[in-house]
Structures are given as C-alpha cells and as structure tokens.
Amino acid sequence: MSTPFHLRRYHADDEDAAIALWQQTWQQAYPGIDFAARAGWWRARWRNELVPEAAIIVAEQTEVLIGFVTIDPKGYLDQLVVSPAHWGSKLADALIDEAKRLSPECINLLVNKDNARAIRFYARNGFLPVGEDVNPTSGRPVLRMEWKP
C-alpha cells in the first residue's frame, strides 16, 4: 500500500520545490532537452505568468511536493506535473479532477504530439482532440485538447 497524498493550494514557499519538480519531470519525459538550462526562464514564467493568474494545486506526500496542476480563469491547463516516481498512480487523475472542479465548464490544453503517454492519459480523462498547433516557445507540434462535462 502506498503512502497517501493530499492536495492543497500552492503557497509562495513551494516555489523552489515546484521548479525542481518541473525540471525533473520534464527531463525524464524528454531526456534530449537540457531543462536545467531552461530553469531560469521557467522560474520567471512561473512567477510572472502562472502564479499571478492561475489556480495552482499541489500534491504532497510526507511533506514532499510530488505534483501540481495549474488552471487559469479561462480554463487553460498550462501544467500538469507528476513526479516520475508517481507516474501510473492515481495522482494525475486526482489533479485532473481538481482542475475540473476549479473549471467545471471547460478545460483546454496543449500537449506535445510526440507525448503519446500524456495524450492517452488526457483521452482517458475525457479530453478530445480539437486541433493542432505549434508551441510558440519550443517550436514542437502540439495537439489542442478540450474537456467539457
């Protein structure tokens, strides 16, 4: 039996742990990209764009941050980050359920087209593909997905 986790609102003192978790998780998902080199950019984006605009829910287990989700007032889910040690657990489902609770009308997101694992996860949670685009930061092709109740 795994140790339970709990969800709560983000606090400013979670910043370092959230940045480190983002870097670790994305590095695991895309080992060919140097996410350490992007950490400064990410911290600035986190502070200046996400924290002021989005609801951020974090998941903790034994006082360690193990995941988070960000959802803005328009229903855009920018980040769903789960520690690689918890991939395949119920944690991502719990974070998505929380995003749906916070944005009950509609959620939109972009997911890298080469991230089949994430696309399957979102589809399993009721998200449908609604178009394609290119990530303006990375230049990678992305799939636009949407959830409506």
Rank of each mutant, 00 (worst) to 15 (best):
N135L: 06
A99F: 01
A116M: 12
A94S: 12
G75V: 00
P73N: 11
V82K: 10
A99G: 15
A116C: 09
D14C: 09
S83D: 14
R124I: 01
P31Q: 14
P129T: 13
A18P: 04
Q61Y: 02
R101I: 02
A20Y: 03
N125D: 07
D114L: 14
N112T: 07
N115I: 09
D133S: 14
M145W: 08
F121Y: 08
E49W: 03
I57Q: 05
V134G: 03
D14P: 03
A17H: 07
F5W: 14
I71Q: 04
I56Q: 07
P149K: 13
L102I: 01
I107Y: 00
H86N: 08
P104G: 07
R101P: 01
L109H: 00
L77K: 05
V111N: 05
A36Y: 11
I33V: 15
D78P: 02
P104W: 06
E98K: 13
K148F: 03
I71E: 09
A85Q: 14
K90W: 01
E63L: 08
S103Q: 12
E60M: 06
A44S: 13
A54T: 02
A99K: 01
A12T: 06
Y76P: 01
N135T: 07
V82R: 03
Y76H: 13
H6R: 13
I19M: 11
N135V: 02
E146V: 03
N112S: 14
Q27D: 11
E15V: 01
E105K: 14
R38L: 12
Y10A: 14
I107A: 05
G75F: 11
K113L: 15
G126R: 00
W26H: 07
P149W: 05
V111K: 04
C106D: 04
I66C: 12
T70G: 05
A39R: 14
D133P: 05
Q27N: 08
P4Q: 11
A44D: 15
W42D: 06
E60N: 04
L50R: 09
Q61V: 00
E98T: 09
V142D: 15
Q24C: 02
L109V: 01
I56C: 08
W42P: 07
A118P: 00
A99W: 06
A123H: 12
E132M: 06
V134F: 10
W147T: 01
L21P: 02
E98R: 15
